[in-house]
């Protein structure tokens, strides 16, 4: 049962925005964004480059002022109470930024000193454990300018992990990493999430979102296209009913009678939208009846099933365009 505050408002969301808008001159970078990130979720924030993800994150982190609309993080309005919120938030925004002339360890000490709520007595110990967590202990004494991109990315993550956080905001955390580095970061994200930290993860990589996220929102051209649990989003892309049969003509007739729409007949396959798909849910019974009807009509069925839609199908269905995996 969701906990309600005295005002009766449900406070289960870690990030909540309503009609959040950022305008640069004539261009709308973020347009009327209303986002809800549930507590405990690994929330994927998906969209092509330039779709307004980073601008949104910068508004949530108090770096840029919204043109209009409201936002709250951890139940507090931002940017008004941003300094109360931020000590509980670890962030990686648009890649890591480090002091090249300082060692990895000293970079962490520097960022920790910037937080007035961070206890200087435990600073070194916390920096060491953060380094350990991202596997940089051995390279901690090296100057950051000698780090590879993957090491810089991991040091950026370590800075986000200097304190126990309630929310981690990770903007493209695997950008520029090799497959091994990506796997490591994703494993770390899962680990953190399992400890109860809400993770808000932006990415332009669909498979990344599918692999690690429980929830997702899709942005395109500054607008929110959809948001919800990943499973639902994929299901919303309406998996197509596929029947493999030599008797395609008869099968198509029977299926049409039973309310299957958008039928496409290829060589030995008939595909179509199962009835009730618009609601996003398909009662399994319906499919069984379809199958029974086909067999009853003498159609020789070789294969029968609904092809599960991927998030990529969902994205194409929602935006009507391919997902440009730039870079």
């Amino acid at each position: 049962m969701p906990h309600t505050s005295t005002g009766g408002r449900v406070t289960e969301s870690v990030i909540e925005t309503s009609a959040l808008t950022k305008r640069y001159g004539k261009q709308l970078a973020v347009d009327q964004l209303s986002l809800t990130v549930p507590a405990g979720s690994v929330f994927g924030f998906l969209g092509p480059n330039g779709s307004g993800k980073t601008t949104t994150i910068r508004m949530l982190m108090g770096l840029i002022e919204p043109t209009s609309g409201r936002a709250s993080v951890l139940g507090r309005p931002v940017p008004r109470e941003i300094r109360t919120v931020l000590p509980h938030v670890g962030a990686l925004i648009e890649g890591p930024a480090l002091y090249g002339f300082l060692s990895g360890r000293d970079n962490l000490l520097r960022y920790d000193a910037a937080d007035p709520t961070a206890d200087p007595r435990t600073r070194r110990a916390r920096a060491e454990s953060a380094l350990d967590r991202v596997g940089l202990t051995a390279a901690a004494g090296k100057k950051a300018k000698a780090y590879s991109l993957g090491m810089k990315q991991r040091l950026g993550l370590a800075a986000a992990l200097l304190q126990p956080r309630r929310l981690l905001v990770l903007d493209e955390p695997t950008n520029g990493l090799d497959p091994q580095g990506m796997r490591e970061i994703r494993a770390l994200v899962r680990e953190l999430a399992s400890e109860g930290t809400t993770v808000f993860l932006s990415s332009h990589l669909l498979d990344e979102i599918e692999q690690v996220c429980t929830h997702a929102a899709v942005m395109a051209q500054g607008r929110l296209i959809t948001q919800g649990p990943v499973a639902e989003l994929a299901a919303g892309a309406r998996g197509r009913l596929t029947v493999t049969t030599p008797d395609t003509g008869e099968a198509a007739r029977v299926l049409k009678e039973l309310g299957v729409t958008d039928l496409v007949v290829t060589e030995d396959r008939v595909t179509g939208e199962p009835p009730g798909a618009e609601e996003g849910a398909q009662a399994p019974g319906d499919l069984a009846e379809l199958n029974a009807a086909l067999v009853g009509a003498g159609v020789r069925v070789r294969g029968f099933g609904v092809e599960r839609a991927s998030l990529e199908d969902a994205f194409v269905a929602l935006t009507g365009e391919g997902f440009d995996v730039a870079g």
């Binding site: 982190m61 108090g62 770096l63 000590p87 930024a97 002091y99 090249g100 910037a114």
Partner: peptide, 11 residues
Amino acid sequence: AGTLRYLLVAP
């Protein structure tokens, strides 16, 4: 250097 944004979110 980009470090400004990290100092500000530190905060």
